[in-house]
Design a protein around this nucleic acid. Structure first.
Length: 283
DNA sequence: CGGCATGTTGCGCA
DNA sequence: TTGCGCAACATGCC
């Protein structure tokens, strides 16, 4: 369940399980997820080490060890960390585990679950490029609206596409982008460089609202179950919660995008509409 | 059975 | 060079 708020929840959970504890055993033999692919890579780099802290930037997690070693985790599409007792059985889709001995005497175990295996677990002794090249994280760094406006002015692409670019804003995925643009009343097809300074201000507030709302729900829920609290994401064909118009669906950058044609304003020229093929009108 | 899914990368074309 | 479109990855759910 990987977008910024979900990854932040995973970070807090991993931090709770691992920080200050000594790793007694670590294992993953999944050659699709683990880097380097050698099954011994995770264990060799982490066994006997103490966890300094767990941090996050965008959708990446970083476990920092006492010897400077690091473990980076990206959840892909279906990745997730859970905390268990070290004696708990292996569970469905479990791809990795990190067992620790804690000072409180508890033997905890962090388990990485990932059915589709699009996630990554990268062992390194330095920060990897995927981490270092990330743009500002809305929670860790905050969003500087003026700086963002300057960046957005450089591209003619659809605004939704641009804010999902991890080097521009770290952690914004399809759900957050869709929801934030609805909050900001901006049509996701708008050209990035056509937004006004006021639009960017609204977008920044929209992102904050979308992230905050989602984080609140994830933190107060006593389950990892998926809950649909969205205004428009996944709601194509249903009424807009704000104005009642029917929510439309388009594809931007290959990703399904829901929005309200009535209360979300379009900026810039309709990006060239090459072919208006009479594709099936879904819904 | 077909369609779709919270992410990322890489290729080909205009 | 920029901007897209699309396939691929692998699995589950409706």
């Amino acid at each position: 369940m990987p977008e910024l708020p979900d990854v932040e929840v995973a970070r807090r959970r991993l931090d709770h399980a691992l920080r200050g504890a000594t790793i007694t055993r670590a294992h993953s033999a999944d050659r699709r997820i683990l880097r380097p692919k050698a099954p011994s890579a995770l264990s060799r780099a982490t066994k006997g080490r103490t966890v300094r802290d767990v941090s996050r930037r965008g959708k990446w997690l970083k476990v920092l060890l006492d010897d400077g070693g690091r473990l980076f985790s990206h959840l892909g599409m279906t990745g997730w960390w859970v905390e268990r007792d070290a004696s708990a059985p292996t569970e469905r889709s479990e791809r990795a585990r990190i067992d620790v001995a804690r000072e409180d005497g508890r033997n905890a175990s962090a388990r990485y679950l990932d059915s589709r295996r699009f996630g990554r677990l990268i062992v390194a002794d330095h920060d990897i490029d995927e981490w270092s090249t990330l743009g500002p994280d809305p929670l860790v760094d905050g969003i500087d609206a003026t700086a963002l406006a300057a960046t957005l002015a450089k591209s003619r692409r659809a605004i939704k596409d641009v804010i999902m670019e991890q080097t521009i804003l770290a952690g914004v995925g399809n759900i957050l982008a869709t929801e934030a643009l609805w909050h900001a009343r901006i049509d996701p097809r708008s050209r990035s460089n056509a937004l006004t300074r006021a639009d960017v201000g609204k977008l920044v507030r929209g992102l904050g609202k979308a992230i905050g709302d989602e984080l609140d729900v994830r933190m107060t829920a006593d389950t990892d179950e998926w809950s649909d609290i969205f205004a428009v994401y996944g709601h194509a064909g249903r009424p807009c919660p704000r104005c009642g118009s029917r929510i439309a669906r388009v594809v931007i950058g290959g990703r399904s995008t829901a929005f309200c044609k009535t209360c979300q304003v379009r900026r810039g020229t309709p990006a060239k509409t090459p072919r208006s093929r009479s594709k099936k009108r879904a819904i």
